[in-house]
């Protein structure tokens, strides 16, 4: 493998990691805090992508589309959270997993009904290329990577510096004790749920120009997203970052070497991690439930 090829692969891998991170960090966080596995996040991912598609093709502005997607997804997520999750939080993880799969399926049916089965292309908002180490790469990939870095730093600052962020960290350790201080934990649950949905929608919109938008896009990425969450350890942001980076690179290199390996590799890594640590790389010792 030559240097230009190598550089290209690494950048492609980083862009994949960026999208995986946006999609899985919220899943990990909401498992940590609410003990839910929210499969409906993949609906918000699809909705984010479809809204981006609609606005980009109608109004010609990708970034406006992204914003519309995030707002639409958060509105939808708020409705789902208030009407369904409020009754689920006190029950087991399985409960949320199965119910949210139902929500996801309903959403996929609705998307098929509205937009049909045909995959739709989304125009790349930034068409320029840059030269790097003898290869030319689309600027858009660097924008994606940059956005993920900004989101990561923002999330860390939010959790470490703000009082609500501290309440979230406290809740991840022990929800009952957090409520015992007089904090309305359900309000914090709603907030984290919306944050997760917003990140999922953003991931969907950002991902759209790199792939095609189709009704099953949410289902196609479920396995990878959850493998990342599992490898990193449920509830750990640091773990999600590390495993996003790992899986992004493994998949990018897989594609250049032997395509089938790219989709197999994350699973092999997951099995290896399970052999060593059944709770993932950074699975928190606080998550006893």
């Amino acid at each position: 493998m030559s240097v230009p090829e190598l550089a290209g692969t690494v950048v492609i891998g980083l862009a994949m990691s960026a999208i995986f991170f946006m999609l899985s960090v919220g899943l990990s966080l909401s498992y940590g805090l609410m003990r839910i596995v929210s499969l409906d996040q993949f609906l918000y991912y699809s909705v984010g992508a479809y809204m981006t598609y609609v606005v980009t093709s109608q109004a010609g502005n990708f970034w406006l589309g992204l914003l519309t997607g995030v707002i639409a997804s958060c509105t939808l997520a708020l409705t789902v959270e208030k009407s369904l999750y409020r009754r689920i939080y006190e029950k087991g993880v399985m409960f949320s997993m199965i119910t949210s799969y139902g929500v996801l399926l309903v959403g996929i049916g609705a998307i098929k009904y509205i937009w049909g089965l045909v995959p739709r292309p989304v125009m790349t908002p930034i068409v320029g290329h840059v030269s790097l180490l003898g290869t030319t790469l689309p600027v858009y990939r660097f924008v994606v990577i940059g956005l993920a870095v900004v989101l990561y730093i923002g999330l860390r600052l939010f959790l470490e510096r703000t009082i609500v962020g501290k309440a979230i960290r406290a809740g991840i350790e022990d929800v009952d004790k957090t409520e015992g201080l007089g904090i309305d934990v359900y309000r914090i649950f709603t907030l984290v749920f919306l944050l997760t949905a917003g990140l999922s929608a953003l991931a969907g919109g950002i991902h759209a120009p790199l792939i095609m938008v189709d009704p099953h896009m949410g289902l196609k990425i479920i396995a990878t997203a959850f493998m990342i969450v599992i490898i990193g350890g449920l509830g750990s942001i640091k773990g999600t970052v590390v495993s996003s980076l790992l899986i992004g690179q493994v998949m990018a290199f897989g594609f250049t070497i032997w395509a089938p390996a790219a989709e197999m590799a994350p699973f092999v890594i997951m099995l290896l991690v399970f052999l060593i640590r059944p709770t993932g790389l950074y699975g928190s010792q606080y998550l006893r439930r």
Partner: peptide, 15 residues
């Protein structure tokens, strides 16, 4: 058990 990942100050801040 107090929030072990939070400092004493942060524990009090939350209350």
């Amino acid at each position: 058990e107090v929030f072990s990942d939070l400092t004493v100050r942060e524990n009090l801040e939350l209350a």
